[in-house]
Simulated assay, not measured.
Amino acid sequence: MIVVSGLRKRFGSHTALDGMSFAVEPGQVTGFVGPNGAGKSTTMRVILGLDAPDAGTALVAGRPYRSLTRPLCHLGSLLDAGALQPGRTARNHLLWIAHSQGLPSRRVDEVLERAGLQTVARRAAGGFSLGMRQRLGIAAALLGDPPALMLDEPFNGMDPEGIVWMRQHLRGLAAEGRAVLVSSHLMSELEDTADHVVVVGRGRVIADTNIAALLKTAAAGRVTLRAGASSIDAAAGVLEAEGASVSRTDVGTLTVTGLPAEAVVTLLTTRGVPFAEISSHRATLEEAYLELTRDAVEFRAATGSEAAA
């Protein structure tokens, strides 16, 4: 288990962390998301003892990472898939890490197989694609068979097959009872992978919640109604008379709030108003994320002359 409590960190005049607090529970994948500059990388570096906080604590199995004996047996991490000696083979890269932790050589072969790298184990890692380096990084993180894992952008560089593998692999690790923290900008992948999400901005936690609950809140009970040109106005009138809020979002399409889909169907059917389709709105994690971080983005790309300046 990873527990972050009240982390504060400044770099000169810049506040990177401003009371960051959350926990990564065993048996689930926790997504860690936020805009660039939100404090995700700094938080992960503090957890690993690479940066010292000005205040607060980051504990792994109840202790600071630096105080752990054989730390890879408590927390496996992947922050930079390119952090390797390019002339070493994949197997030798893992061997020196394993030896540093007092782990047996057979463990190297086990994680190579689990990462799908057994056929390229004796190739120089410097010639690997980014996706293969990600797999090698996952293998390194698993060397100590740790109960917790922390991965930064593990989907980067993956081809479609690799993305499916990564998604299934992460869920499999959680199913084994491990606590898995995954930072990513790929909301669609996290939506299909994570059970829980921690959304951060400006060094603080904005939301710390179950993904299903977050998406339900983001959907806000909206219903999409499609009807022909001859009945769309009549449908809007019937629904507004019942207290619903109705807005026209496209030709022949209404967005309805204040009434569930079943009630909309009953009302229009009873009043004899024809319609083509009614569906409850299903929010995406990306939609929920953008709404939550609307005021937490420190930099937005400029266009035209602003970009040139």
Rank of each mutant, 00 (worst) to 15 (best):
D195W: 00
G137M: 11
V197L: 11
E189Y: 04
A207L: 11
A141Y: 13
E176Q: 14
V199T: 11
V182Q: 07
E242H: 14
L225E: 02
G221E: 03
A235W: 08
N210R: 12
M166Y: 04
E240I: 06
T217E: 14
S183Y: 05
A141C: 14
P147H: 09
L186S: 00
G203C: 13
L130I: 04
A212I: 00
G137D: 09
A213F: 00
Q134K: 06
E153Y: 07
V180W: 02
L151K: 11
A241Q: 14
P146N: 13
L181D: 13
E240Y: 04
L186E: 06
R178S: 10
L239H: 01
G172C: 07
T193R: 01
L239S: 03
G177R: 01
L181W: 12
F128D: 03
I211V: 15
N156Q: 12
L143G: 07
G162K: 02
L173S: 03
E191Y: 06
L181Y: 12
A219M: 00
A218D: 07
R167N: 10
D208V: 06
L215P: 00
A235F: 04
A244Q: 13
A220F: 01
M166C: 15
W165H: 03
A175F: 01
P154I: 14
A218L: 06
E189F: 05
R178H: 04
D195G: 14
A179L: 13
A140R: 15
A174F: 03
L190C: 14
D192M: 10
T209V: 11
A207N: 02
M158L: 15
D192K: 14
L215G: 03
G131D: 09
L173A: 02
R135M: 03
R135K: 13
Q168W: 00
G172L: 06
M132R: 10
H169W: 15
A229S: 14
S184I: 10
P147C: 10
E153I: 11
S188I: 06
A220K: 10
A235P: 09
A141G: 15
L130S: 04
D159T: 07
A234D: 15
A218S: 15
S231K: 00
S129C: 11
T193E: 04
A218E: 07
M166S: 11
R222E: 15
G237L: 05
L181H: 11
L214T: 06
R135H: 06
V197K: 05
I163W: 01
L225D: 04
L151F: 15
L181K: 11
G157W: 04
P146T: 10
A213P: 01
V223D: 11
S184A: 08
R133Y: 08
G172F: 03
A241M: 06
P147T: 05
L170P: 01
E191H: 07
D195I: 02
E242S: 13
A235V: 13
A241C: 05
M187R: 08
A207C: 12
L151E: 12
S183R: 08
R202V: 06
T224G: 05
A141T: 04
E189W: 02
E191S: 08
R167E: 08
H185E: 06
A241P: 00
A244I: 12
L190A: 13
V197E: 01
I232G: 09
